[in-house]
Design a protein around this nucleic acid. Structure first.
Lengths: 171, 171
DNA sequence: CGTGGCCTTGAGCATTCTCAATACATGTGG
DNA sequence: CCACATGTATTGAGAATGCTCAAGGCCACG
């Protein structure tokens, strides 16, 4: 990912959509063993990505010293991210999930003063296993508790006012 | 993993336990980028594992032709498993989660006639983000629906009677 | 303005959790 | 061999949580 934001997702047979992950600048994604990818990918905003063929990646890595280690690190990073996502999904209450999600996005954007969410409430819900209404409600609860506030007229731009307290919801 | 079964888990500050994954014979686990492991591991039954140092693994792979590719495959396999687990965790209802879990264990044991669950109901609950009571109830529902039956006196040994129908719950 | 997309909020309902009682298998000591 | 304790699983009832359905607001765009 060079710039922008991408979601990878799957549709279930009953029409529900599960979002597997959001990708932000700096991420690499799409590592697969089989021939076909198991997720679809869509850009959420104007996005620039660099496509690398598996073969090319392997070759370029074999060329440089410590290249293999670097490559392993890259895939392992993806694995660790996935494991963090799972911790998030196993949380019991919706409030915990939403708080953990906001903290995750905050970290990945390097704790900016004003955080930009490139995804809709429905996207967040499909990512967390919640409905968009519940996501909206829980964000309102956090706002009313003074842990965050919206910036400007849109509800996609917000500021975390108390990461300390927010991470307490996150156990 | 040579034989047996292992759970990897984390304790939350409020005492709840999240099980990250169960490992069965043939699996490799514990890939980490940082120095410390982020999960604890416990054997569920009499277990044999083979410990491999990261350095040793990298060296042995560098030696053989296509070793790097093999190694990438290994880590990628772990990543894909993690992604499957996430699909499972995002399922909405408890029945779907339990059905998907049973099918997963069935696959990983190569669809035996009688499946042995090395973990308790509480373990399953901590893995799925449910309580042990809910797990028990959903299994009873599947039993009453004729999709599985217990084998012998223990409730850890069971037989899937209708994988077809079971996978329908799994969307 | 009017429309459409997104978000919020409310009310009632369904599902899951909590707390509690019971059952059952296993292991221990008398 | 028989209590007895312990750990695990099942089941029930009421409470809490999240979902569904619905209404309304706000912004962007034509």
């Amino acid at each position: 990912m060079v710039s922008g934001a991408v979601r990878t997702y799957r549709l279930l047979s009953d029409g529900r959509r599960q979002i597997n992950s959001f990708h932000l600048p700096g991420d690499m994604f799409g590592f697969e063993n089989g021939k076909s990818h198991r997720f679809s990918a869509e850009a959420l905003v104007e996005t620039k990505v660099r496509i690398v063929r598996q073969r090319a990646l392997l070759c370029s890595m074999a060329d440089q010293a410590g290249g293999t280690t670097k490559l392993i690190r890259l895939v392992t990073q993806n694995l660790q991210d996935a494991e963090s996502h799972m911790l998030l999904l196993r949380r019991k209450t919706a409030l915990e999930k939403v708080a953990a999600f906001l903290l995750e996005m905050d970290e990945r954007q390097f704790r900016p003063d004003v955080m930009e969410l490139p995804m809709s409430r429905r996207d967040i819900g499909d990512y967390l296993g919640l409905t968009l209404e519940t996501v909206s409600r829980e964000i309102s609860i956090l706002r009313d508790a003074g842990l965050l506030r919206f910036v400007g007229t849109t509800q996609r731009r917000l500021s975390l006012l108390n990461r300390e307290e927010l991470s307490r919801y996150d156990s």
